[in-house]
Each structure stands twice: as structure tokens, then as C-alpha cells.
Amino acid sequence: KELVLALYDYQEKSPREVTMKKGDILTLLNSTNKDWWKVEVNGRQGFVPAAYVKKL
């Protein structure tokens, strides 16, 4: 599985998104969309802005 690092805090704005804190390590589930990547964090799956994370 591929991991990404949260570069910034992000507060979810819809049920399809997830909240993350700067420094969190997230599991990358899908990065086919250039703007929104699907990740898993704390057992929850959802989208975060691709610009807010970096592949490890």
C-alpha cells in the first residue's frame, strides 16, 4: 500500500471528505483525480485535496 504525508491541516467540508492534521501519515487509496485523492485515516475513508499531501 502507498502512504502519503499530510503537509497541512484539512477540515472536512462534506461527508465524502476526511479531516487530517499536518504530519499525519495516511493510506493512499486512489490518486487518479489530480485534485482530490482518496485516503484512509483513523479507519475512515474519504477525499483530501491532492495539494495537501505528498507521497512517501
Rank of each mutant, 00 (worst) to 15 (best):
K1I: 15
K1G: 13
K1N: 12
K1F: 15
K1P: 15
E2V: 13
E2K: 09
E2I: 13
E2Y: 11
E2W: 13
E2H: 13
E2L: 12
E2C: 13
L3F: 14
L3Q: 11
L3S: 08
L3A: 07
V4N: 01
V4I: 09
L5T: 08
L5V: 15
L5I: 15
L5R: 09
L5C: 09
L5W: 07
L5E: 14
L5F: 10
A6K: 01
A6Y: 01
A6M: 02
A6H: 01
A6Q: 01
A6E: 00
L7M: 11
L7R: 06
L7H: 04
L7T: 05
Y8N: 09
Y8F: 13
Y8Q: 13
Y8K: 12
D9W: 03
D9R: 03
D9H: 06
Y10I: 01
Y10L: 01
Y10E: 01
Y10V: 01
Y10Q: 00
Q11I: 15
Q11A: 13
Q11C: 10
Q11M: 15
Q11R: 11
E12S: 14
E12M: 13
E12K: 13
K13T: 14
K13R: 12
K13Y: 05
K13V: 10
S14A: 08
S14M: 08
S14E: 09
S14K: 07
S14W: 06
P15S: 14
P15G: 10
P15E: 14
P15I: 12
P15K: 12
R16G: 13
R16V: 12
R16S: 13
E17F: 07
E17L: 05
E17H: 07
E17V: 05
E17W: 04
V18Y: 03
V18K: 02
V18H: 03
V18M: 10
V18A: 05
V18G: 02
V18C: 09
V18F: 10
T19A: 08
T19W: 04
T19H: 05
T19G: 10
T19Y: 04
T19R: 06
M20S: 01
M20W: 02
M20E: 00
K21S: 11
K21L: 09
K21D: 04
K21H: 11
K22E: 07
K22S: 08
K22T: 08
K22L: 06
K22V: 08
G23D: 06
G23L: 03
G23W: 06
G23A: 03
G23V: 01
G23P: 00
D24P: 00
D24A: 08
D24Q: 15
I25P: 02
I25L: 10
I25C: 06
I25K: 05
I25D: 01
L26I: 09
L26G: 12
L26Q: 01
L26Y: 10
T27L: 14
T27K: 09
T27E: 14
T27M: 10
L28H: 01
L28M: 03
L28N: 01
L28W: 01
L28T: 01
L29A: 03
L29R: 03
N30T: 08
S31C: 10
S31N: 09
S31E: 14
S31A: 13
S31T: 11
T32D: 15
T32C: 14
T32W: 09
N33F: 09
N33C: 10
N33M: 09
N33I: 06
N33K: 07
N33E: 13
K34M: 11
K34H: 12
K34G: 11
K34T: 12
K34Y: 08
D35K: 13
D35V: 12
D35H: 13
W36L: 03
W36I: 04
W36N: 02
W36F: 07
W36E: 04
W36C: 06
W36T: 02
W36Q: 03
W37P: 01
W37Q: 02
W37E: 01
W37R: 02
W37L: 05
K38V: 14
K38Q: 13
K38T: 09
K38H: 14
K38G: 06
K38C: 13
V39L: 03
V39I: 08
E40Y: 06
E40M: 08
E40T: 06
E40N: 05
E40L: 08
V41K: 15
V41N: 15
V41P: 00
V41T: 14
V41D: 06
N42S: 10
N42Q: 11
N42F: 09
N42E: 12
N42I: 06
N42Y: 11
G43S: 07
G43E: 07
G43Q: 06
G43H: 07
G43P: 03
G43N: 09
G43F: 06
R44F: 06
R44G: 04
R44E: 07
Q45V: 15
Q45R: 12
Q45H: 09
Q45L: 08
Q45T: 14
Q45P: 07
Q45E: 14
Q45G: 06
G46A: 04
G46Q: 02
G46M: 05
G46F: 06
G46D: 01
F47S: 04
F47Q: 04
F47V: 08
F47C: 11
F47A: 03
F47G: 01
V48R: 00
V48K: 00
V48C: 05
V48N: 00
V48P: 00
V48G: 00
P49V: 01
P49M: 03
P49R: 03
P49F: 02
P49E: 02
P49I: 02
P49G: 01
A50I: 03
A50R: 08
A50N: 03
A50Y: 02
A51N: 14
A51L: 11
A51R: 13
A51I: 11
A51M: 11
Y52K: 09
Y52E: 03
Y52A: 14
Y52T: 10
Y52H: 09
V53A: 03
V53Q: 00
V53C: 14
K54S: 12
K54Q: 15
K54H: 11
K54E: 15
K55P: 13
K55M: 14
K55V: 14
K55H: 11
K55E: 09
K55W: 09
L56W: 08
L56R: 03
L56N: 04
